[in-house]
Computed example of a mutant assay.
Amino acid sequence: MRILLVGEFSRLHNSLKEGLLALGHEVVTVNNGDGFKNFPADISIRARFFKSKLGNIPRQIWFRIFKYDLALLEHGIRFWMVSKKLKNFDVVQLINESPIQTVSKLELFLLKRIFKQNQKVFLLCCGIDFMTVTHLLQKKERYSVMNAYFENIPEAQKQFDYFFDFIAPPHQKIHTYLYENIRGVIASDIDYVAPLIENKKYLGILANPINTDKIVPIENIISNRIIIFLGINTGNSYKKGISYFEKALEIIQEKYSEKIEIIITKDIPYSDYQKHFEKAHILLDQVYGYDQGFNALEAMAKGKVVFTGAETEFLNHYHLHEDEVAINALADVNYLVEKLSYLIENPKEMERIGKNAIQFVRKEHHYIEQAKKYVAVWETN
């Protein structure tokens, strides 16, 4: 099959591409690199002019006056320039409801062109979109990535502005068009099942594909200090509950200063992020999750002990026990301190969890096996 993967946020499409290529399919990715993460693309629509020194000046002025980013417009223009090449694919998959990341009218225009030029189009639900925001605002879950918003934390509110873009009238037109025309929507992990479960276009959950052939496990053996790594993306720190990790680390630093080394980074490229977590024994990923995202899974495949979403729903789905493959992170500083303290004082537990994590990712997330599942869904819908 000829397959077009549009958009990228977590390296999901790049890993899926690797699995599909191994199966003999022809695959093309088109995306903007997702900002500082700088993910690769076969066809890049990254904003270059408005992120250059020359273009950044009018970009900043325009944003202050009109409150939208000209770099988004450039994404759309660059996609339009290559759109004639993006045709006659057997399958197109969109990373989410706004895979091009441009202004709404242009996004809709370009998506319509993709549908017109290709046979089957599928949608992924692996982040914020109309369905997830609508669901989260109903407060049906025990907690969610919107906790900080609901708690009216003043400095957090700006991080949630873009959530409401997905339920505003301009985006609702995109959402409606997509759900009228897609063959189906796929959830990438348990966090996205609840918003979709009653939707007639929902095709099920397909776990994140991880290229474990490229990831060399590192034995979590403690020879000196235990290294704890927290990589912060300041744009979504409240969404992930990072402040709970930061407060817990302050206590842990004081309590175990001679036994540990703490590494904290902010907004670094994905390649640099990988270098840091390779050195770490423990990785702090996110508090507000029921299942693991891409960064957590890649760290688990390395044999790290990851504090992330590993809730009861996840354990039941994969028939696992508590603390078997990861530590379920909660919005409770004392709980996080207790869990970290136990690991620091019982390093053999880190070895056990790390080995289990490697086997779990290989079994449930292997990129070729997951690619086979995607192909099966595409072929039967």
Rank of each mutant, 00 (worst) to 15 (best):
P217K: 04
K214E: 11
Y238P: 11
G204V: 05
I232A: 04
E254P: 05
I252D: 00
Y238H: 14
L203I: 06
A248L: 00
N236T: 13
S243N: 11
E219C: 04
Y256P: 05
E254S: 13
Y202F: 15
K247P: 08
N220S: 04
L206V: 15
E254V: 06
I215N: 09
I228Y: 00
K201C: 06
T212V: 15
K247Y: 10
N236E: 10
F229G: 00
P217T: 03
I252W: 01
E219P: 02
P209C: 10
K200I: 09
I218Q: 09
L206P: 05
P209S: 12
K201I: 02
Y244F: 15
I232R: 03
S243W: 14
G235H: 11
E250Q: 13
I221R: 14
R225V: 07
E250I: 07
K239W: 14
S257Q: 10
I242M: 04
E250W: 07
N236A: 12
F229W: 01
L206R: 10
I226F: 00
K201N: 15
I232F: 04
Q253S: 15
G235C: 06
F229P: 01
E250F: 08
I252Y: 02
K239M: 11
I228K: 00
N233I: 06
K201S: 12
F229Q: 02
V216H: 13
I251D: 02
I218S: 08
A248N: 01
G235S: 11
L206Y: 06
D213E: 13
L249Q: 01
E246M: 15
I222L: 13
I252E: 02
I232K: 03
Q253P: 04
K255T: 06
P217G: 05
S237K: 15
Y202I: 03
P209E: 12
I232C: 03
N233W: 07
Y202G: 01
Y244E: 13
A248T: 02
E250G: 09
E254Q: 14
S257R: 09
K240M: 12
A248R: 00
K201R: 12
I251K: 10
I218R: 07
I221M: 10
I210P: 03
T234H: 13
L206D: 10
K214R: 12
I251G: 02
Y238W: 14
K247E: 14
G231H: 00
P217W: 05
E250H: 13
K240I: 11
I242W: 00
N236L: 10
Y238K: 07
P209N: 08
L230I: 04
F245Q: 04
N236Q: 11
Y256W: 11
E246F: 05
Y238D: 08
I218E: 10
T234V: 10
T234I: 10
I215G: 06
I205A: 09
I218L: 15
E258S: 14
Y238R: 06
K200L: 07
A207T: 09
